[in-house]
Design a protein around this nucleic acid. Sequence first.
DNA 1: AAAACGGACAACCGCAAGCCT
DNA 2: GAGGCTTGCGGTTGTCCGTTT
Length: 212
Amino acid sequence: MAVSVVMLDHIADTNAKPDYQTCLAVKGKQSTAAPVTESVILLKKRPSKDESVGHEIMVRKGPWEPEEDSILSAYVKEHGTGCWRKVAERSGLHRSGKSCRLRWINYLRPGIKRGNFTDVEEMTVIKLHNELGNRWSKIASQLPGRTDNDVKNFWNQFVRKQEKSKKKQLACLEANKIKNQLIKSNLGEKLQVEMAGFAVDGMNLPHRIISS
DNA sequence: AAAACGGACAACCGCAAGCCT
DNA sequence: GAGGCTTGCGGTTGTCCGTTT
């Protein structure tokens, strides 16, 4: 049985708040082992109105274990998706329906493409984003095997890279501007001597020159 | 070798829309 | 039509892991 489920059963039995030592013990690890992160062991009680359940449901959060993936895949293969809350309950996974849905759509679903975006995919995303804006699911629907999460992550990464290179370019321009102004001024003659030996790109200018 | 950093991506959260009773 | 529930979407955060210092 999956480690996570064993852990949950243990906690349900003792009705105690899980602590790191308990989890480490249940996981069969020594206390010196890599720490179990808070999100892995965080469990949330969710009230249920389902009479067949009759008690609160423990919901597991954090990264999915391979065993959980197997359970979800097997369940969906046999029963299909339908109502995700029922999938979560009937599969025996101690997860929310939302979490199951996300895991299936973004990771387990057949045909999911992994790895870097190809040039064609990149161009498609850029083009479609121009037309549609942040409509990630619409954009993803034009890219077979890619999820909206993939597209969103790609775009955020792309934007960050653009901003970074833009900032670098601006910094260089600004530094060169300052350098030229100083050279033109009377002060420049003295400073030219001082600056000799420093790179022209402005990134290596002495601090007092940049900040003046 | 260890700590710090940064990139990639997985997962959660809140909200809105749609559906059902 | 109102209210509750489920699903889907987009924004944000967390975690892992490779690289750099």
